[in-house]
Simulated assay, not measured.
Amino acid sequence: MTTSTQPPAIVFTDFDGTVTLQDSNDYITDNLGMGYPKRKVINDQILSGETNFRDGFHKMLESIPNSFDECIDVLLANIKLDPGFKVFYEWCRAENIPVIIVSSGMKPIIAALLTKLVGEDAMANIEIISNDVEVTSPTKWDIKYKHPESGFGHDKAQSITEYLKTHNVAPGTTLFYCGDGVSDLSAAKETDLLFAKRGKDLIKYCIAEGIPYTEFGDFMEILAKIKVIVKDGGDIKQFHA
């Protein structure tokens, strides 16, 4: 979303499992690739530090034999939107608050799902910062990491820093981040208030690292808290767990 004036706040958000109810990458890995039990082992290895997200995620995706187009078709038929996200997005747009997707997924998948689930307006106004995909044949494809040198594949902290610099965001602008899982670890310390999805892995990391956060179940909860902070001048610290 491009604005002509400095916004009162900026919302950076993960996409899979945060904006959507299911993680699209987990869905195709579980249903088309190696399956949940093997993916869970890799996920636990990422959380424990035995492997990094970049390498673990690549193993998951390379287990999928289907073409990229087939993967998108499966996801469009099965992935659902967080029930509060569209209302949240429309409120942010009316209040001149950019919503920026910062994802460890792949841009063509995010764009297809966002267009179907939220609409063309969202695609025109929500910036997507993510990995990409390289399709080399009708049946062969691979993830193209935004930051291949990083153990995250996409270093979300770096992307947030770059966004603030390139958009000349004024010091003191309130920054929010919304996430749920292991791909959000690099971004967890980068904003003023972290929204971590209830019952998901990001909360475990925040507790272990002593990172302040507030839980959410859906975007209506996020909206209510952001309204208190942005519109009513509420203290962010009141929401820290």
Rank of each mutant, 00 (worst) to 15 (best):
P8M: 05
P108L: 03
A196T: 04
I203M: 05
L117D: 01
G33R: 12
I100H: 12
G233C: 00
F176A: 05
L32F: 14
I128K: 13
V169T: 15
F85V: 00
D121E: 14
I79V: 14
S48K: 09
V118G: 02
L223A: 00
E127H: 11
E215D: 12
K107M: 09
N52H: 13
K197Y: 02
G199W: 02
F88R: 00
E95S: 11
V41G: 00
Y163G: 12
A77K: 14
V135E: 04
V19H: 08
D69E: 14
S183E: 08
G119Q: 07
V99C: 09
I10F: 11
I128A: 11
Y177W: 05
A208I: 02
L61I: 12
E162M: 10
E62T: 15
K59R: 15
G181E: 05
D69K: 10
I222N: 01
G217V: 15
N43M: 11
N96I: 13
P171R: 04
A241V: 14
I236H: 03
S103T: 11
Q238H: 10
T3N: 10
I229H: 04
S48F: 02
Y213H: 07
C92Y: 07
F176W: 06
A208S: 12
C71L: 08
S183R: 07
N78A: 06
R198G: 00
Q45H: 10
L75C: 09
A77M: 00
S67G: 15
I110K: 10
S104E: 09
F12Q: 10
Q22P: 01
I10N: 13
Q238K: 14
K156L: 13
E134F: 07
Y27I: 01
F68R: 02
D201R: 13
D73I: 04
E190M: 11
K140N: 14
I100L: 11
I236L: 15
V102P: 03
Y145L: 13
N78K: 09
A122R: 07
T13V: 14
F216S: 03
I72R: 06
P212L: 04
I72G: 06
C71D: 11
K146N: 08
G217H: 10
V228S: 03
F53C: 02
A188P: 06
E70P: 07
E190I: 01
W141R: 05
T5D: 08
E162I: 10
S63F: 05
M106V: 14
E190Q: 12
